[in-house]
Simulated scan of single mutants.
Amino acid sequence: MIEIAKNVYQLPLLPRNSINCYVVDDLLIDAGIRASASKILKSIKSHKINAHLLTHAHADHQGSSSLICERLSIPLWTSEKEKNNAESGRVVDDYPNPRHFVARFQQLNWAGKGVKVSQTLKEGDEVGSFTVIETPGHSIGHISFFRESDRVLIAGDALVNMNLLTTLVGLNTPPALFTTDTYQMKESVCKLNKLNPSVICFGHGPVLHNDKGQLEKLVERMGC
Rank of each mutant, 00 (worst) to 15 (best):
R147W: 02
T173W: 00
T131P: 01
S38T: 11
Q119T: 13
G89A: 05
L54M: 09
H58Y: 14
H204A: 11
G223M: 03
G205N: 07
A158N: 00
L108P: 00
L177F: 10
T55Q: 13
T166C: 09
L159T: 05
A86Y: 05
D60M: 11
P15A: 04
M162F: 06
S139C: 10
S64D: 00
L218Y: 06
N7K: 12
Y22H: 05
L13G: 10
C69N: 14
K194P: 01
P174M: 06
S73F: 00
S66V: 01
P98D: 03
R99G: 11
D25I: 02
R151H: 14
I74W: 03
L215H: 05
L159H: 06
G112P: 10
V207M: 01
I44C: 04
R90F: 10
R151G: 04
I49Q: 05
L108K: 15
D94H: 10
N84K: 11
S129P: 00
K186A: 12
P75N: 08
L27V: 12
C21A: 14
D150K: 03
S64G: 04
P197S: 08
I68Q: 00
F101R: 13
N85K: 09
D211G: 07
V169F: 12
P96N: 06
T131H: 09
E123A: 14
L195N: 12
S149A: 14
A37W: 04
